[in-house]
Design a protein around this nucleic acid. Structure first.
Lengths: 339, 339
DNA sequence: ATGAAAGCGCTAACAG
DNA sequence: CTGTTAGCGCTTTCAT
């Protein structure tokens, strides 16, 4: 049962002064005498007074709370992003309300409403895989609440963004497979309604083109989870037996692909080289250790929230938006090897 | 810049009725005529009216927001817990404010204040490794705000708790090593100021005792991270050359231990069997795949929040607290093998 | 140096 | 069926 929390009114009554004096004393307003200031502060401490943020926020029309909408917290990449957001929020005195959409459009809509109702000062969003319509996000801009999209951005809504150079990263990964001597390179891709899915395919294509390889649509398999990889790799490789390099859209897919290859009695990297994307902690644990493209989740979080806080705290020209692009770097390990 | 958000006052003015009528109409109060109800609701929708949760919360003295204080979001176990919390919170109409302590006592204190100031209806806590003093948590109980501790509980504060049966899990792990024929079993342990660290050592000891093995303090190494394992395993095994089984306090330590063993030219499991604790996704990726004790993070989250919401919504006898104990189960894989 | 009063947006007891 | 009013806890003008 919720006990009565002490308010400035209580303090005022006890000290026989007015609530406005208490309010001022607590924030060391210069008008207040040192004497009353100390009296008030002492009593407040003794009574475990804790300012009611609700009341303050209602008054100031500012909550010092940021909303985050994220597909799935359990993915290492996303939890790194949250961690980065959290850390900067802590430094700057913001609270963070985290909502996970579980990749469900409907849940994303309800999450948005909840954040709106709670009058968050700004939101950080990574769009769910099933979201094809974006009006629920537009509500934020309509209310003048700044948004920053990260990783899975929404092209139709102009605002600040933080993304990885997916195209560039995919190029690096594919180029790496080419330069170590792979002749026929496949790509296990993410759904193409996601920009990151598109970007990684483009990078793959550009690398092929630049090195005079033919692009073959049959070598692009929609396959972006561990489960799909375990299920489809063998069939795919039987249908395309001379594939000797695979670029997978993320690490867990890449690792599952390696496991499926090994189960077929083939060797990674000597028969088939495999490279992933993301460089989660798994990459070092896999056997062989996984070559991948480093994607900085924590940094993406810190960059996104810095952009957001800047928008919130500076009356910057409303229509100047920036897109921060994080450049991924190639990390060659044992799963890809010179032939 | 924050635009004026539409309020019931705006709607009232436009419709030429009083704000209380609007308020009632919006919540379909039976007193209100169907006609005005519809008018109000239509206009509200058209104007994108969104109730101001701050005002409501202030009025009701209830925020429908829950606080979470967690050591590190990036650990798979903890992010699973959050995911479970999130999912139930969503179902029950609560928002979640997530704070990470980064294993820092000081940050935990500040996080607690922030949650207190925001008048959360309840808190879910897993204590940081560096926390040795607990007054910041007592503030919650003093204010009548229910708390549930999970995983890393605080023995000195009586309240609801959700824990894994660490002792039992450790017993299972150790017993498993014994029954597959290990003669000399070491334990890589967590710091002993954490209850989970103690519990796992106890389970290890009990298993040894039950199978008439001598307990040797020298075989308990304080080593609970990947880094420590990579650094210390070789030295430890040289000092204790006939160790043929290792029970590590968590999976990442266990996996790093395997890697260190392999680097020494020894084989897992034939030379040394290794078992972990936690069953994160890494266990399946490691080579050999890691035997471990399953710890259900997601379920821990759902149980904890259910307990919390129950306390919040039912004026249950203030001093009846329960401790939910999740029973871990053994998962034998390739890293432990009959000799 | 301090107090009185208004108001942030909403609900609900009370009055018609 | 609808309106008036008070109040949640706080800040801030405007008086004094």
């Amino acid at each position: 049962m919720r006990l009565h929390q002490v308010t400035i009114k209580d303090i005022a009554k006890i000290l026989g002064i007015s609530i406005s004096t208490v309010s001022r004393a607590l924030k060391s307003h210069p008008d207040i005498s040192a004497d009353t200031r100390n009296q008030v502060k002492d009593l407040a401490r003794k009574m475990h007074y804790e300012p009611n943020a609700l009341a303050m926020n209602l008054r100031r029309n500012k909550t010092n709370t940021l909303g985050v909408i994220i597909p799935e917290i359990v993915h290492h990449f996303f939890s790194s992003v949250i961690s980065g957001i959290e850390d900067i929020a802590y430094d700057r005195g913001y609270n963070v309300m985290v909502c996970q959409s579980n990749e469900l459009y409907e849940r994303e809509v309800i999450n948005s409403r909840a954040l709106l109702a709670n009058r968050v000062d700004g939101v950080l969003i990574s769009v769910s895989k099933t979201t094809l319509e974006f009006d629920h996000f537009r509500n934020f801009s309509n209310q003048g609440i700044p948004m920053v999209f990260f990783d899975r951005i929404c092209p139709e809504i102009i605002c600040d963004r933080v993304i990885t150079n997916d195209e560039g990263g995919a190029f690096l990964a594919t180029e790496h497979l080419i330069t170590i001597g792979c002749k026929k390179i496949a790509h296990f891709a993410a759904p193409q309604n996601l920009l990151i899915g598109q970007g990684r395919v483009s990078g793959y294509q550009r690398a092929l083109k630049q090195y005079q390889r033919v692009f073959d649509q049959a070598l692009v398999l929609q396959c972006d989870t561990r489960e799909l990889a375990l299920e489809n790799t063998e069939r795919f490789l039987k249908a395309n037996p001379d594939v000797d390099g695979i670029f997978a859209v993320n690490d867990s897919t890449a690792i599952a692909t390696m496991q499926a290859i090994q189960k077929m009695g083939k060797n990674v990297p000597s028969d088939i080289s495999v490279i992933g994307f993301g460089d989660g902690p798994n990459a070092l644990i896999a056997c062989p250790s996984l070559s991948t493209v480093e994607q900085k989740g924590y940094e993406m979080g810190t960059e996104a929230i810095k952009l957001l806080v800047h928008k919130i705290e500076n009356e910057s020209p409303a229509d100047s938006y920036q897109t921060k692009v994080l450049t991924p770097t190639l990390i060659a390990r044992e799963s890809t090897k010179w032939k």
